[in-house]
Each structure stands twice: as structure tokens, then as C-alpha cells.
């Protein structure tokens, strides 16, 4: 799980162009949206693309995203259970 968390943080920083942020700055439980990393709806689209492209997970219900994208930890847990690649 720890390897997946680091991989996710690295990819999110790259994909979302998070200048000045390192993987150490993102806590596993920090909220990704709102007060935490401050991501927005366009970032959510980028995360959906990332999940499908890198892990073969296609979200069918947009409302699922609310729970999955709460934090890096929730993302990692969902990916480890549902990944197809």
C-alpha cells in the first residue's frame, strides 16, 4: 500500500501540475478538495482519467468520486481493491 501511495502522490503532482508541492507535503489523510490540497472540479476530471489510464478503473457513478477522492489513502484503498491493470 505504501508503494501505491507514493506512486499516487507522484502522479497527482505531475498530472495536476502542482508547483511547489512535494510528496512529503501531502498527508495520506489530507483532504484532496476544499481545505486540503484545494483541488477543483477540473482536477476531479483529471483524477478520473488517471484512474482509468493507470489502473484500468472506470468510474460508472460520478457520486462514487466523493468517497474515493477524499484523500490519497481512500484513493489508494479503492485502487488496490478494484484495479484491473
Amino acid at each position: 500500500m505504501e508503494k501505491l501511495i507514493i506512486e499516487l502522490k507522484t502522479e497527482i503532482i505531475k498530472v495536476l501540475n502542482l508547483e511547489d508541492i512535494t510528496i512529503e507535503d501531502i498527508g495520506n489523510d489530507d483532504p484532496l478538495f476544499g481545505d486540503g490540497l484545494g483541488l477543483d472540479s477540473i482536477d476531479a476530471l483529471e483524477l478520473i482519467v488517471l484512474m482509468e489510464k493507470d489502473y484500468g478503473i472506470k468510474l460508472k457513478d460520478a457520486n462514487q468520486g466523493r468517497d474515493i477522492f477524499k484523500s490519497i489513502l481512500t484513493m489508494a484503498e479503492y485502487i488496490s481493491k478494484n484495479r484491473t491493470i
Partner: peptide, 13 residues
């Protein structure tokens, strides 16, 4: 590269 899948919204905008 991705065969017209996984289109990046930020680059598109």
C-alpha cells in the same frame, strides 16, 4: 499515444 482515450481536460481547455 492513448488512442483517443483518456483526454486531458486541462490541456484541452
Amino acid at each position: 499515444r492513448n488512442e483517443e482515450k483518456f483526454l486531458k481536460p486541462s490541456f484541452f481547455i
